[in-house]
Nucleic acid binder design. Structure first.
Lengths: 304, 304
DNA sequence: TTTGGTACATTAAGTTTCTTAACTGGTCAA
DNA sequence: TTGACCAGTTAAGAAACTTAATGTACCAAA
């Protein structure tokens, strides 16, 4: 009693399966949905189970959803039934595509994903430096324990990397790179420290920095964007659809500390008049507001 | 015989574990590395196994790597041993960070990842329309079976979405959005079709389009980038480190069809003189070459 | 100092999952 | 028609896993 599986069984009413079995059935259903077919061999190889076990799994799935699966004797594989309805997974396009991206980013090996018939695909390459996991770990530990940590950081301003104490309290992804949001005990302000520029870490120590004083991190700002007015009315409508705008406006809320990056990422850092509208579909509607807020951040010199 | 697990056992020599057991031991080691600790309860809850089983797993891991793990009676959890060395996983910073991104992208629920002590973190938000999995599936099926498919596409040029036949042969991610690389039977050229702008699909049919004729997709181009010369020498050195440049140059090869996107993504689509060097760290060294190639693509009007 | 709570440990009996081993059947291509 | 391939099956036994009950160490609150 008090066992989580027991609870699940109680609440759902369906016969509870063991974790491994459930993964295999989900795998099978995933393949059925996205690829329309699978072989018993797929299960045997992916999970390292025996033939009889794979057969048993397939039967089990057949019992759960008789219409979802059919064996095609001439093609020699199991195929999606005509009125297939997933019962274990909720197919998610973004999730499927994220798996492809993980492959192209080198984060996952094709064999680790459930995708078998990878479509021909490619992604715009992004140069990226590898990060030593132990270095990232030091930062994470400092965040978790709330300590200051001494890091050797290569800043843009000093030719040689320097050792300094920082108190990291969060990680941030600017769309390109990861950085640690931290209080710099050298410059006495909160800044972003790019993880790959942290060349080494030494000891940690307690401190009395309160992350809630990192205003640029805690406070948010709302970008109001609209279609580029230099586009034709038709094009503007399409852009509105693309971005899910309402009445020609999309509001995007983000941390003040991300304002600079978001602007850059959306191409809003360049005067629209300098670019062809077909190259820059959206414009910033409240640039005055954003400018002011961004200025207030820059006064804290947020770019390390 | 011919069984993959058998083979693994033969080749590695170590006692082969079942898939589920191995996942749990990896989970445990993952937690030890990245978070320094775990509770037996974590295993019980994540995998839905019983207390004795979780204890057995922990002991099994202890047998495999006695120095990696220690129980802290007063803190009431298992902690990383002093000379911890992972034996089942190879810690990968990018992989860890990719999990965080998946969470913030909504692709994975926090409970689905192995990260328990999520550090405070955030990412620059990107507006994105959700894609109906069935629509993506139709495209994938057309790619796999090599068929033409009739799609209702919202182009930038026509106010109303139109039905047209396309022959998709690959998916592409431009750093922002996914599109299908396809031959358009209406315009008689290969183009990019943004997946979210495909509003519906109808039937499929055979065709005689050869993807190898999609030159902009098949051919590649090499970007040569260097540090922005308007930066100070020190800054230029840092940028070289950031991008892993050799002798001040980084070569990035990409498909011709991605040339436009890559340029935009790297901020190389705007004249560097219009921007402060601190806002644009890199410049394109072979823009003449790129311009010419890009022009040749545009003649095929690659922007749908 | 006792009391209670929590988290881990362990044992025993029994169930489910899974393996090995040996065998059958259908389809297709050489 | 033979072989290759992929599926299916059965039976015996091993491994993994469960429930149930009980014990122990540590800490914090009464």
């Amino acid at each position: 009693m008090g066992d989580i599986r027991q609870n699940q069984q109680d609440s759902s009413g369906s016969p509870e399966l063991r974790w491994g079995v459930e993964r295999r059935l989900e795998f099978l259903e995933f393949r059925l949905f996205w690829e329309g077919r699978f072989n018993r061999k797929d299960i045997v190889e992916f999970f390292g189970v025996s033939n009889p076990q794979a057969s048993a799994d397939i039967h089990r799935y057949q019992d759960l959803a008789p219409n979802n699966i059919r064996y095609d004797g001439s093609q020699k594989f199991f195929v999606r039934g005509d009125d297939f309805k997933p019962i274990l997974i909720t197919p998610d396009a973004n999730r499927y595509l994220a798996q492809l991206r993980s492959i192209s980013d080198g984060v996952l090996a094709p064999r680790e994903t459930w995708v078998a018939k990878t479509p021909a695909f490619d992604a715009v390459p992004l140069p990226r430096r590898t990060v030593d996991p132990k270095r990232l770990l030091s930062i994470l530990e400092a965040i978790h324990t709330g300590s200051a940590i001494q890091v050797q950081y290569q800043s843009m301003t000093r030719p040689e990397p320097t050792w300094r104490w920082i108190t990291p309290h969060a990680l941030g992804f600017d769309g390109f790179r990861w950085h640690a949001r931290a209080y710099c005990h050298l410059d006495k302000i909160f800044k972003d420290f790019l993880i790959p520029r942290i060349l080494g870490t030494r000891k940690t120590k307690p401190h009395d920095i309160d992350a809630s004083n990192d205003h640029a991190w805690q406070q948010t700002i709302t970008f109001k964007i609209g279609p580029n007015p230099n586009l034709t009315p038709t094009q503007q409508t399409v852009v509105e659809l693309d971005y899910g705008m309402k009445n020609g406006v999309l509001e995007i809320e983000t941390r003040l500390a991300f304002s600079y990056y978001l602007r850059k990422r959306l191409g809003l850092d360049v005067d629209p008049s300098l670019r062809d509208a077909s190259d820059q579909h959206i414009v910033l509607l409240n640039s005055d507001e954003i400018d002011v807020s961004q200025q207030s951040v820059l006064e804290g010199d947020s770019n390390a």
